[in-house]
């Protein structure tokens, strides 16, 4: 009995974390190629609204999902155009889009507030779901959750083992060197920023169609900022970013499980916890003592440092012009 409760909880953590996985991986791709998409909080919200609205109107969740991805990619395109072609500050444009998309989601989404609508069909994977413990945790969900595993695996392989991934990283780290090697730096940046944006849009659809069903005013507020922090926490490495997403998801579930058992602790403590945690993790991964870890601990210091520390792509936020 106790075991099945743990399994159930872990399964719900995996499901609840999947939007953060999509958003974190999408942002990682975008930053890895050198473009910060700061608009995540707004992008996810507008995509969640679009996804739910289109799914409701068409009756098909897949129409909603594709629509949400298009919205995410278009917002990323605005950031790419303004930064790469028009030389505007990425942070400024990203921030404006955060506010603008949130307001757009409230305005356009008004008719869809708290109406019943379609959601992803529950779809256990036959065979795999029979695996003891792991089966019910990982393979007893819907299609979007499985897609989040695919996103983690594909991005990780893309970065590490493929030629396009090598080019992508070169563009993000040393745009000049990449250009000298004949890579079209800016086209590469456009492409992957939009791909990352599409994944961010998918994160929105995952909220409104799978994790936090439906639409309400500022339905996903705050998650975008968490996802942005997870990318830093994960050191721009897809596997670690995914780990960070599951960690935040787990702590969120933990809070909602613990809350009834601690009636004396004000609920606001649980509301603020993810953001306090966000600050603490960022303080940790940026802390100076990590630099000195190998000195303190000759044996494990290096390994621990590699785990905790991550360096941003050297070309992040740097514009590139071929002339």
């Amino acid at each position: 009995m106790a075991e099945s409760l743990v399994v159930q909880t872990l399964a719900s953590v995996v499901a609840a974390s999947s939007p953060l996985v999509f958003a974190g991986i999408g942002e990682t791709i975008s930053e890895k190629v050198g473009v910060t998409n700061l608009s995540l909080d707004g992008s996810i919200m507008l995509a969640a609204m679009t996804g739910f609205a289109l799914a409701s109107l068409s009756g098909s969740v897949w129409v909603g999902i594709v629509g949400a991805m298009v919205v995410g990619a278009l917002i990323a395109l605005i950031i790419a155009v303004s930064n790469i072609s028009l030389r505007q500050d990425q942070v400024a444009v990203g921030f404006v889009l955060t506010l603008l998309c949130a307001d757009l989601s409230s305005f356009i989404g008004k008719p869809f507030v708290r109406i019943p609508g379609p959601s992803m069909a529950h779809m256990p994977i036959p065979g795999l779901v029979q695996i003891p413990i792991l089966g019910p945790i990982f393979f007893n969900h819907d299609m979007l959750v499985y897609l989040s595993y695919v996103a983690i695996a594909l991005t990780s392989i893309l970065f590490k083992h493929t030629q396009p991934g090598l080019k992508l990283r070169a563009v993000g780290e040393r745009p000049e060197a990449a250009f000298a090697r004949g890579i079209n730096v800016n086209r590469c940046r456009y492409l992957y920023t939009m791909l990352g944006g599409a994944l961010v849009g998918l994160a929105g659809a995952t909220y409104s169609l799978s994790v936090k069903l439906g639409w309400s005013y500022r339905h996903t507020a705050g998650f975008g900022w968490i996802a942005l922090a997870i990318v830093i926490f994960g050191g721009w490495n897809p596997l670690r970013v995914a780990f960070g997403a599951y960690l935040f998801g787990a702590l969120g579930s933990l809070a909602s499980i613990l809350q009834p058992s601690f009636p004396n602790v004000p609920t606001q403590v649980f509301q603020a916890a993810p953001f306090a945690l966000m600050i603490l993790t960022l303080l940790l991964v940026n802390a100076e003592f990590i630099e000195r870890l190998p000195l303190y601990m000759p044996k494990f210091g290096n390994a621990l440092q590699r785990i905790l520390q991550g360096k941003p792509p050297a070309g992040l936020g740097k514009r590139f012009e071929s002339d």
Partner: peptide
């Protein structure tokens, strides 16, 4: 060394 955007938002 925490970017002021994240510190401020948190």
């Amino acid at each position: 060394k925490v970017n002021e955007i994240f510190g401020g938002l948190g």
